[in-house]
Amino acid sequence: MAASDERIFVQAIRRYCAGHGIAVDVRADGWLIAMRRGDERRFAFGYDIGLNSAIAHRLANDKSATSEALALERVPCIPHHLFLNPKLGRNVVGHGWREAMLGLLRDHPQGAVVKPNEGTSGRSVFKVTTEAELDHAASEVFSMSAGLVISPYVAIEDEVRVVLLDEVPLVVYSKQRGTDWRHNLDAGAKPTLLDDSEVRTACVKLAIDAARAIGITFSSIDLVCVDGDWRVLEINSGVMMEALGKLHPALVQATYDAALDRVFDRVHSER
């Protein structure tokens, strides 16, 4: 793979390592990156550079667990109700799961959103308003996932992503929706950096509260404004900035540099 075809994440790690005397070995088309300095080796996998604890990483990657953890700390969030794949068996899934799904749909006549419990970029995300649409969405998601989540469909007035490192906001931008009802960057939304404002301040505070709730160190946190109030939509343990990197490459490089400084400073302190 040519360097120009690599993800911005991979290119950023290459630049950092080249500037800090760190050997780098890129495998699996860039999805596994080994970094070596002296006797110490660190890995990046996907978009995760290994700064977060195992439990924080798992919570962030599980939409249902994230919403439950945030609710425990009274952090405003969009609820995500978990349903396990019935193929796992009745002893695991139990009875009445479909009726519970239909109950959620009845509770939200404006519609519901069905999506995999784990996963990013808005893939296999369905808005449903009828029983037939719900059954189709559930079948599609269960065909490729061990579990799905159902959340109420809400009219999102604005969406902001905050990239945090040790509770410091390194990047804050809004997602300007395109023709799709979703705000995912892969669905055509455009990132726009936020200047100092009341919105930026409120979003940073909420993002920090969310990060504290699950004990995560390096993350991107998606926030949505609904009826004038900001809520957490999800927390991402892997920090992906591909779309932003095309517009603001220096900012994205500086953000990954700061995170990698933290990785290798920790290595140094453990010696």
Rank of each mutant, 00 (worst) to 15 (best):
223 L>Y: 02
183 H>G: 02
205 K>C: 12
229 D>C: 15
221 I>F: 04
173 Y>I: 04
199 V>K: 14
230 W>G: 05
195 D>I: 00
192 T>G: 13
173 Y>C: 11
163 V>T: 10
182 R>K: 06
167 E>C: 04
226 V>P: 02
179 T>M: 07
216 I>L: 05
219 S>P: 03
222 D>V: 08
169 P>R: 00
174 S>Y: 01
206 L>D: 01
196 D>H: 11
195 D>K: 01
169 P>G: 07
196 D>N: 11
182 R>I: 01
184 N>P: 05
199 V>H: 13
200 R>E: 10
197 S>V: 12
212 R>P: 13
217 T>G: 07
187 A>T: 00
185 L>A: 06
192 T>E: 08
178 G>T: 15
195 D>T: 00
174 S>E: 14
224 V>W: 05
219 S>M: 05
197 S>A: 09
210 A>M: 09
189 A>P: 00
184 N>K: 00
209 D>W: 00
193 L>Q: 01
175 K>C: 12
187 A>K: 02
221 I>G: 06
197 S>P: 13
182 R>G: 08
197 S>G: 13
188 G>M: 05
191 P>K: 05
197 S>K: 10
160 V>C: 12
196 D>S: 14
208 I>F: 06
160 V>K: 05
192 T>S: 15
187 A>L: 03
198 E>L: 15
199 V>R: 15
190 K>A: 15
210 A>C: 11
212 R>L: 14
213 A>R: 03
181 W>Q: 08
223 L>T: 01
191 P>N: 06
188 G>Q: 02
202 A>N: 11
174 S>P: 00
179 T>W: 09
187 A>G: 03
213 A>Y: 09
190 K>Y: 12
223 L>M: 05
168 V>I: 12
160 V>Y: 02
225 C>E: 10
171 V>T: 08
221 I>P: 06
165 L>K: 06
203 C>F: 04
201 T>K: 11
225 C>W: 00
172 V>K: 02
163 V>E: 08
186 D>C: 01
165 L>V: 03
195 D>Q: 03
229 D>Q: 15
166 D>W: 01
218 F>M: 13
186 D>G: 08
171 V>Y: 00
225 C>A: 13
176 Q>H: 11
169 P>F: 02
227 D>P: 13
188 G>A: 04
208 I>W: 08
186 D>W: 04
171 V>Q: 02
181 W>N: 04
176 Q>C: 14
217 T>I: 14
222 D>H: 04
191 P>Q: 07
222 D>I: 04
185 L>S: 07
205 K>S: 14
160 V>D: 13
217 T>K: 15
203 C>H: 03
211 A>G: 13
222 D>R: 03
169 P>H: 01
168 V>Q: 10
202 A>W: 05
226 V>F: 11
194 L>T: 01
162 V>E: 07
209 D>Y: 08
199 V>Q: 12
227 D>H: 12
211 A>L: 12
178 G>M: 13
162 V>A: 10
166 D>E: 09
184 N>V: 02
203 C>Q: 08
224 V>F: 12
203 C>S: 10
223 L>E: 02
167 E>M: 09
163 V>R: 00
210 A>Q: 07
212 R>M: 15
181 W>M: 10
198 E>D: 14
195 D>L: 10
200 R>S: 07
222 D>L: 07
